[in-house]
Design a protein around this nucleic acid. Structure first.
Length: 318
DNA sequence: TCAACTCTCACATTTGAATAGA
DNA sequence: ATCTATTCAAATGTGAGAGTTG
């Protein structure tokens, strides 16, 4: 499927995101911010190889709700906090040719999520905790080296969204992060966090810290030979779509009708929401609805297939 | 007023890059 | 020049306690 401009954006590390097909949680911290895991890594095609482009990322609120985690599932319980202005973060590679962008994955690894609305560092994105957020990629074509806001294309990937949290709520998500993020390997079942070490606050010597050789060359037991985890716990992954094509300003892809949905206006993010049958039926939760449209306070946001994750058997926390 | 919930921050642990020394 | 050991910065989730909310 291609649009009139033919630009296509796909999630490069979709396999990793698919493992989290429960409402994703992203930690936000105040001071230095917290990097996202999994990171956002995109592939782009359909650009003019010789034309110059800039790539931007921003986060947009998906609705006007505030959520909480109760009885093993997320529920909305209050009206969301006031919408804040969008912060578009330009990719650190700056202006590059279409060939450059199409040559390899475009990583936003450096992005940090913070609860500090006054954060001034250029890679920090302010997020309100306990709200739903969706990353949006903007492709901006330059003309004669100048920015051309009239050629901005925004790309949203339907299954890539998360709830910002200051501490993990769903133990299954926490478990998957620990199992998949090498920087959290100390919290796995094989890590020293679980092995009768002195209590917190006790200074330790280097030999205590590294009693054995690092095991980084061996994948955890639950991994297969490719370093991936078994997918046996997660069903319906074939329903996930991690690609997005657009040709103008605001496009969503409707796979059922093989057509494009146009109409999500960033400047009127909450006032002019997009709602259609496809969104409701295929993703199990209403997105881009205001509080009145959402209606039922007992609604939860997890599609049926999320429920299995709540019983996820995580060896790291036994 | 107060209990429950949320947030902050210092902490221990791990990885990997940089550096020093043999 | 190469290999090994050490140091250091940056990353992670934890958990106690402070702050906020209903």
């Amino acid at each position: 499927m291609t649009s009139s401009s033919g630009i296509q954006v796909t999630l490069h590390n979709a396999d990793l995101w698919k493992k989290f097909n429960s409402p994703m949680e992203m930690i936000v911290t105040r001071k230095i911010g917290r990097k996202m895991f999994p990171i956002l890594e995109y592939s782009v095609s359909g650009l003019n190889p010789t034309a110059m482009y800039e790539i931007y990322l921003h986060m947009e609120r998906m609705d006007d709700h505030k959520y909480r985690y109760r009885n093993n599932e997320w529920e909305n319980y209050a009206r969301g906090d006031p919408i804040t202005p969008v912060q578009k973060i330009k990719h650190q590679s700056g202006a590059q040719s279409g060939m450059f962008w199409m040559d390899g994955p475009i990583s936003f690894e450096h992005i940090r999520l913070t609860t500090n609305s006054k954060a001034e560092k250029k890679d920090h994105i302010f997020l309100q905790s306990l709200h739903k957020w969706r990353p949006v990629v903007t492709v901006r074509k330059l003309e004669n080296g100048d920015e051309n806001p009239n050629f901005d294309e925004e790309f949203r990937i339907q299954n890539v969204w998360f709830i910002a949290v200051t501490t993990y709520q769903n133990p299954a998500i926490k478990c998957l992060k620990v199992e998949n993020n090498k920087m959290a390997s100390g919290f796995r079942s094989t890590g020293n966090h679980k092995n009768n070490l002195p209590t917190r606050g006790t200074k330790r010597t280097a030999s205590e810290t590294f009693p054995t050789l690092p095991s980084s060359t061996s994948p955890p037991s639950k991994m297969n030979s490719n370093g991936h985890f078994s997918n046996s716990h997660y069903s319906n992954q074939e329903n996930f779509d991690f690609s997005m094509t657009g040709n103008s300003h605001q496009y969503w892809m409707n796979p059922n009708q093989n057509t494009w949905i146009n109409g999500y206006n960033m400047e009127q993010q909450m006032e002019q929401p997009v709602i259609n049958q496809w969104t409701m039926q295929n993703f199990g939760h209403p997105t881009n609805l205001n509080y009145e449209q959402y209606g039922n306070p007992n609604n939860t946001i997890g599609p049926e297939f999320y429920h299995g994750l709540n019983n996820f058997n995580c060896t790291s926390f036994q």
